[in-house]
């Protein structure tokens, strides 16, 4: 169940958008799809959303094939595209009513569902406004509501956080977590890695249309993965010398700070203790990148 993608390939003319992607997203989990621009994330989501047929490989959504059983798959998925438009002339409520009608929901059921969703994405007070006057972030939230109309068991979200203000992002995170905890499969693509690390259970890193690695983002990963920490001391020369003596990989970054690569929180704590013990007067010691960000940068390093 959930989403199973096996060796999928899709080309547009002679442009190979997706070369070989394999991933699996489990029910009850939030799976993050991360990768540089043009790495095939959106194309993959189009194939999962029954819009595009893969040239090779197989896709199963809740065990169903989107190519041969698109209707059954559509009843189960909610898709939120990246950079979608909306029917400008319709009000927010009418947009959701129309989508509900497109899912064959009876009118009274459609109205009730619309109100539920407007409350969920905090658009209740904008329900009678034209969709055109919504800000980008509000449109994103309307897009999420639209993807949830049919109560889908699989959610496919393409860059849902782009354009959202910080508060809306936190709310989106909570919404995604609660959707996953209800047993749904949530597949979300994003660039905002720190956000993803907090919400995702698993990250699939893709680049140039290929799966590079699949990373579990549980407590084990956070405590053991390589991460960057920023260190500042009253006497930076002394700090640099100490790090050099102890063969800690470090580099100078902006603001006179030093960035070190440490594998896992255990090692970071030990490094700080050693610095303090040896009399380096440390004034700051903070994680600069999440573990996911480090993993992502390491995996996609060949692009630079």
């Amino acid at each position: 169940m959930g989403v199973e993608v096996q060796g999928v390939r899709r080309a547009f003319g002679d442009v190979l958008a997706v070369d070989d992607i394999t991933l699996s997203a489990q029910p009850g989990e939030v799976t993050a799809l991360v990768g540089p621009n043009g790495s095939g994330k959106t194309t993959l989501l189009l194939m999962l959303a029954t819009l595009l047929a893969p040239h090779q490989g197989s896709i199963r959504i809740d065990g169903l094939d989107p190519v041969s059983q698109p209707r059954e798959v559509r009843a189960r998925i909610g898709w939120m595209p990246d950079g979608f438009g909306t029917w400008d002339a319709l009000t927010v409520r009418e947009v959701l009513h129309t989508i509900a009608a497109a899912y064959n929901l009876p009118a009274d059921r459609a109205r009730a569902r619309t109100e539920e969703l407007l409350t969920l994405v905090h658009l209740d007070d904008l329900g009678d406004r034209r969709a055109r006057v919504l800000s980008r972030g509000q449109k994103q939230r309307l897009g999420l509501a639209r993807a949830l109309v049919n109560d889908p068991s699989v959610l496919l979200l393409d860059e849902p956080a782009s354009g959202l203000d910080p508060r809306s992002r936190i709310e989106l995170r909570d919404v995604l977590r609660s959707l996953a905890s209800e047993g749904r499969t949530v597949l979300v693509s994003s660039h905002i890695l720190t956000e993803l690390q907090e919400v995702a259970d698993r990250a699939v890193i893709v680049a140039r249309g290929r799966t590079l690695e699949t990373q579990r983002l549980d407590a084990d990963f956070v405590t053991t993965a390589l991460a960057a920490w920023r260190v500042d001391a009253l006497d930076p020369e002394r700090l640099t010398a100490w790090l050099a003596d102890h063969h800690v990989p470090a580099r100078r970054v902006g603001g006179g700070q030093t960035e070190v690569q440490v594998a896992g929180e255990e090692n970071a704590a030990r490094l700080l203790a050693d610095l303090v013990r040896d009399g380096v007067r440390v004034t700051a010691f903070t994680p600069s990148q999440g573990a996911l960000e480090s993993a992502y940068l390491a995996a996609t390093e060949d692009r630079r």
Binding site: L51, R74, W79, G85
Partner: peptide, 14 residues
């Protein structure tokens, strides 16, 4: 062009 066709194509409309 307005990006509103695909959102209908992924519903149960044929």
């Amino acid at each position: 062009e307005h990006g509103v066709l695909a959102t209908l194509q992924t519903t149960l409309l044929t």
